[in-house]
Simulated assay, not measured.
Amino acid sequence: MIEHARSAAGAVAERWGVEASPSPEAVTLIVAAVVVLTAVPGVWRVARQASTIIHEMGHVLAAWVTGRRVSGIKLHSDTSGVTVSRGRAQGPGLLVTFLAGYPAPGLLALGMVWLATSGHSGAALTVYQAVLLLALLLSRNAVGILSCLLAVLSTALIWWHNDPEIVGYTVVALGVFYALSGVRGTLDVCRVHLTSRSRSAAAVVGTDASQAAKAWRLLPVPAWLWLFLFLVVSGSSAGGVVWMLFP
């Protein structure tokens, strides 16, 4: 058993240390392909579930950091999701937990592209695989388990095969995808709040921005300011990704 553990640790360390720096021409083609594909409504409806996984894992990480207990996450077929955590019914911990979802895809993109452009694509893909595996373990419904399993398998073969060039291309593509999905997700929730027909609907009451506005009475910030924060973070993350890929 000890030998198997050492072997597994060695395999992970080997893939963590893969160095790759995609050429500028390849980066341009990858960015163009990801932008075009995510602009197709049918493709985006399917791919958006991958963004929802990271959104919920943002809530999970924030809950753990602030001392809350996470019961699990649930993903739905309409690409919405929910993270169930336990702790104080109000306060800064709950506020941070609500705020962490929408910025998560953009921040992940920023980190992955930074590692890729620094020559550490293997580390970026390994961290990404670990996040997906953790999401799979935390999933508490069939749609969530299936979605996380498909997300893991979609990049697991690339991670295991460990071709530096392919790993580098994959990390760049994932970074661009999550940068775009972070902005699109934020714009979608802003649209829910701005659409007059939805102002009094349960959809508005249940958004992260609305929940954050009620999470801490000592900090009475309206929902629209939290929406603005989401836009700033997701937009800045996307801008950082572009700046690193096309310096």
Rank of each mutant, 00 (worst) to 15 (best):
V183Y: 01
P247T: 06
E3D: 15
L150D: 10
L107Q: 00
G106R: 00
V70Y: 02
L231A: 13
F230Y: 14
T195N: 12
V31R: 10
V192Q: 01
G91V: 09
V96R: 03
V221T: 06
V233R: 03
F177D: 04
R45C: 03
V205L: 15
G91D: 09
I54N: 01
L110D: 05
W114I: 00
A130Y: 02
A5D: 12
A11V: 06
L187F: 11
V232K: 04
Q129E: 15
A130I: 06
A209T: 11
A26W: 01
L218T: 08
N141D: 12
G58Q: 06
L133E: 10
P41K: 09
K214Q: 14
R197S: 14
L94Q: 05
A47D: 06
S21A: 10
L218G: 13
F246P: 01
L132S: 07
V233A: 02
T52I: 09
G58P: 07
A50I: 06
G175W: 01
P41F: 06
V18F: 04
T155W: 11
V18R: 06
H55G: 02
A124P: 09
T155D: 11
A215G: 04
L227Q: 08
A179V: 05
L229P: 00
A50V: 09
G175R: 01
V131N: 03
G239D: 02
G17V: 12
H55A: 00
Y169T: 00
V12I: 14
V167L: 11
P247N: 03
R86D: 05
A135M: 11
W226G: 03
G81Q: 11
R88W: 10
P103E: 10
R6M: 13
R6D: 13
S21N: 10
R191V: 13
V233H: 05
L133M: 14
L110N: 05
G58S: 08
A215D: 04
V152D: 12
V241P: 03
A203S: 15
S21V: 11
P220F: 01
V40E: 04
V46Y: 13
L229C: 06
L95T: 05
V43Y: 05
V82K: 08
A5Y: 10
T97E: 15
G67R: 10
V189Q: 08
W224I: 11
L29Q: 14
L229R: 04
A50N: 14
D188C: 00
Y102T: 07
D208V: 10
L227M: 12
L134K: 07
A209P: 11
